[in-house]
Every structure is written in structure tokens, then in C-alpha cells.
């Protein structure tokens, strides 16, 4: 196996250099965004000081920063609880989405019945249903997992269904003339064709998952960033609310970047540069 285990970047010596160049370009591309953000924060800080806005109403960025670092350990503990709900919900959504997408791909009848239901399910305001889940499933982790999975299910399922629809019929025919079995067809054609669609769905789903978990905790939970937010709000510690918001943003960004990394790892053919070999 080892002899063939080339990931494809091997024969392309320029790839390393290009990688470095791309990273530099990425930093340069993000520079304006970072500058703008910094400018806004500076204006905010100045406004709070000049107009002497009460910190309960709108804390200055410096106060928020202080609150973030003072409560860092608590925030980390609460973030772990939220992350558990988000992760478990995401996993459940993924399982459900894959099962349904494969079923819909196999049977047009199932698709005709289920697909409209899927869309309708998305028009139901899940956050409004959340209190009901609390009644049904209790204050524990499970009610949060249900909320998260309902929120994340849709982007995953829709993208998977679409990805399976886009599998090249000519390629399927080609495999039939080789008399390839269903497992080989899945492994060599369907799965790789679906991956880009799957990852666009997953990118949306992971960001939804943290928000879903926080809202679930808001409505009722024993731990989590949502609980921390609510407690801080009731104690008029507005800076802590903002600190929790920062934690939510960081957590979502982290999951998003992790998904991008996963996509990069899962699809090595996308990063193999074009070599533009001439005819020999």
C-alpha cells in the first residue's frame, strides 16, 4: 500500500511555494476587515467615554475585554457545556440527514413525499417550539440536543439531496459497464461527488449549532453559555453578557474553521495544482 500512498501533491514541487504565497495573500485580503473592526471598536470606546454611557446600558470594549478575561474559566466551563449540546445535536442531525438523503436518492417515491415536508419543517419557527421540548425532554442536555439537531438538519439534508442528484449519470453508466457493485459505486463515485455539497451544508450547520444550543439554554438549562448570559443579564452585568457573546462568536468561528480544515483534508484532489503538461 505504501508504495502507492501518494497524496497527489508529490509530483508538484511548486505546490509548497504556492501554499506560502496563498497564505500571505489571505492575510493581505483580511487586512481591511481587521482594520475596519478595529476602527469601529475604537469609536465605540471613545463614545462610551465621551458621553459617559452607564456600563449597564452599554459597556465599553475595554470593560468587555476585562469581563472576558476575569470570567475566562467560567466561560470555558460553560462553553464546554454548550459545545457538548452543539456537537451532539450536530451528530444527530447528520445521522438523520444522511439516512433521509440516501432514502430519497434510492426511491423517487420517498422523495416526492418527504421533500416538501422537509421544506415545510423549516418554516416552523423552531425557537418558538423550544419551550415545548423543555416540557417533553426536561432541563437536561437532551432537550438542547433536539433543538440543535432540528436547526442543523435542514441545511445538511438539502445539500446532501442536491449532491446526490448531481452525480454524473454518464459516470454511473460507465461503472455499470464495468459491472461494479453498489459499494464500489458508492465509494468511488457517489461519496466523492457529494462531498463538496456536504461540506457547504456542514459549514452552515456548525454555525447554526452553537446558536441553537445557546437559545436552548436560554429557555432552560443547568449550564451553558446561554445560562451564563441570562444570569449576567438579570444581574445587570452587561459586560459579562457581551463577554459571553464573544465566546459564542469564537466558538462558532472555531467550528467553521475546523469544518474548512476537514474539507481540505477530505478532498486532496482540490489542492493539487494544475501542472499544464504539454502533449508529448
Amino acid at each position: 500500500m505504501k508504495r502507492w500512498a501518494n497524496t497527489g501533491t508529490g509530483p508538484n514541487p511548486a505546490a509548497g511555494e504556492r501554499q506560502q504565497g496563498r497564505r500571505g495573500a489571505a492575510i493581505r485580503r483580511n487586512l481591511p476587515t481587521a482594520g475596519l473592526l478595529l476602527l469601529l471598536v475604537a469609536c465605540w470606546e471613545l463614545a462610551c467615554r465621551i458621553f459617559e454611557i452607564p456600563p449597564q446600558q452599554l459597556p465599553a470594549p475595554s470593560a468587555i475585554g476585562r469581563a472576558f478575561f476575569e470570567n475566562f474559566t467560567i466561560l470555558a466551563v460553560q462553553a464546554r457545556a454548550s459545545l457538548a449540546a452543539a456537537g451532539a445535536g450536530l451528530l444527530m442531525a447528520l445521522l438523520l440527514a444522511v439516512l433521509l438523503a440516501v432514502a430519497m436518492d434510492r426511491s423517487p417515491l420517498i422523495k416526492r413525499f418527504l421533500y416538501p415536508l422537509l421544506v415545510i419543517s423549516q418554516t416552523v419557527p423552531i425557537y418558538a417550539l423550544a419551550p415545548l421540548f423543555l416540557i417533553w425532554f426536561g432541563l437536561g442536555l437532551f432537550s438542547k440536543v433536539v433543538i440543535v439537531s432540528l436547526v442543523c438538519f435542514f441545511p445538511l439534508a438539502v445539500n446532501l439531496v442536491e449532491g446526490l442528484e448531481q452525480v454524473d449519470p454518464e459516470a454511473l453508466e460507465l461503472l455499470r459497464t464495468m459491472q461494479a457493485g453498489p459499494w464500489l459505486v458508492f465509494r468511488s463515485l457517489q461519496l466523492p461527488s457529494v462531498l463538496p455539497y456536504f461540506f457547504s451544508g456542514l459549514k452552515i450547520a456548525v454555525t447554526y449549532s452553537v446558536i441553537g444550543a445557546v437559545i436552548g439554554e436560554w429557555i432552560g438549562a443547568r449550564a451553558g453559555l446561554g445560562v451564563f448570559m441570562l444570569r449576567s443579564l438579570h444581574a445587570f452585568k452587561t459586560a459579562q453578557v457581551f463577554a459571553a457573546i464573544i465566546a459564542v462568536v469564537l466558538l462558532s468561528l472555531l467550528l467553521f474553521k475546523l469544518t474548512e480544515l476537514l474539507a481540505w483534508l477530505a478532498m486532496p484532489w482540490n489542492r493539487a495544482g494544475r501542472n499544464n503538461i504539454e502533449e508529448e
Binding site: 454524473d168 454518464e170 460507465l174 459497464t177 464495468m178 459491472q179 461494479a180 468511488s188 466523492p192
Partner: peptide, 26 residues
């Protein structure tokens, strides 16, 4: 051995893996 107009090489497989497909199918 059916070969359609497009080469239909799978972009996610290396040349080696593409060419080996019919053997794996067998």
C-alpha cells in the same frame, strides 16, 4: 470496454486509481 465521448476520469482519483477501477470492479 465502453468508452464514452468524455473521458469521465474521476477528478478525485489519481490516474492510477482511475485506471484500476475496472480491476477493482472485477
Amino acid at each position: 470496454g465502453y468508452m464514452p465521448q468524455q473521458d469521465l476520469l474521476f477528478p478525485w482519483k489519481t490516474l492510477l486509481q482511475n485506471a484500476a477501477l475496472p480491476l477493482l470492479a472485477a
